[in-house]
Write a protein that binds this DNA or RNA. Structure first.
Lengths: 117, 117
DNA sequence: CAGCATCCTCCGTGATACTG
DNA sequence: CAGTATCACGGAGGATGCTG
C-alpha cells in the first residue's frame, strides 16, 4: 500500500464521489431533499428501514461533506430541518441517472444468479 | 418548498444501483473496461492498491450482476479476458458524471472539516 | 421531537501462502 | 498467469435504552 502519490492521484475520481455518496442511505436522503426541506422525523418515516442512529449519522456526514444543511429551530418541541446545499443540488443529474438506471436494471435483470447457487 | 415525501416511497431505485456498483473497485474496473477488453493482470496493474483476491471478487460480482463478461482462453499460460456487457456499457453516462463530479468536488471541497480535527 | 451512548453483528477488505 | 484457501481486522450498519 502506501504507493506513489502519483498513482493515487491517477485514481478515478469516481472513488471520490463514492466516498461521499457511498453510505447506504445517503443518496436516498439526497433524493428526498430534492423535493424540499424536511424534518428529521419526516425523513425517518419515508426511508423504510432506517434507524434513528443511522439517519443521524448519514445526515451528519452529508452535512460535514457540504451536501446538506442542518437548521435547528430553538423551539419546543425541537424542530430540525434539512435541506440541500448548492453542492448537494449539483448531484441532481447523477441521482436522476442512478435512479432511472436502477429501475431499468431491476426490470431487465430481475433475479440474477448471484443468489441461486 | 415543501414536498410530499410519501409519494416517493418506491422511487429510490438509487439503492438498487448502489448495491450493484457499491464495491470499492467496481466503478474503477468498469471505467477501465470502457477503454477495451483487458486481462486480469492488466486490470490488476492499472488499479493501484487492489489485491488479487479483491480484484477476483469484484470481477466475479460484476460478472454475476451481468455488467461484465469473463472469457477464459484454454491456453498455456492461462488468459482470461474481461469486457463490458451491454448492461455494463449502459453505465457510461453515470460513470462519466460521477467522475467529473468527483473531480469538481475535490477541487471545490479540498479539505473539509470531516478530517481536520 | 431529535438525538446521543452503548453494545453488537456482519461484511467488505486485506495479507499471505498455495495451485493448475 | 490467474486464480483459490485461510486468517484477520476495521468499520459500516443495527438494536436498544436514555435524554434535553
Amino acid at each position: 500500500m502506501r504507493g506513489n502519490l502519483d498513482e493515487t492521484q491517477d485514481q478515478c475520481a469516481v472513488e471520490i464521489a463514492m466516498e461521499v455518496l457511498g453510505g447506504r442511505w445517503k443518496l436516498a436522503i439526497i433524493r428526498k431533499l430534492f423535493l424540499g426541506t424536511h424534518r428529521f422525523g419526516e425523513l425517518r418515516r419515508t426511508l423504510p428501514g432506517v434507524t434513528q442512529r443511522m439517519l443521524t449519522r448519514q445526515l451528519r456526514e452529508l452535512e460535514a461533506d457540504g451536501l446538506i444543511s442542518r437548521t435547528v429551530h430553538a423551539e419546543v418541541p425541537p424542530r430540525v430541518e434539512y435541506a440541500l446545499t448548492d453542492t448537494g443540488r449539483s448531484l441532481e443529474r447523477i441521482t436522476d441517472l442512478l435512479d432511472s438506471w436502477g429501475r431499468w436494471y431491476r426490470d431487465n435483470r430481475p433475479g440474477e444468479n448471484r443468489d441461486m447457487g
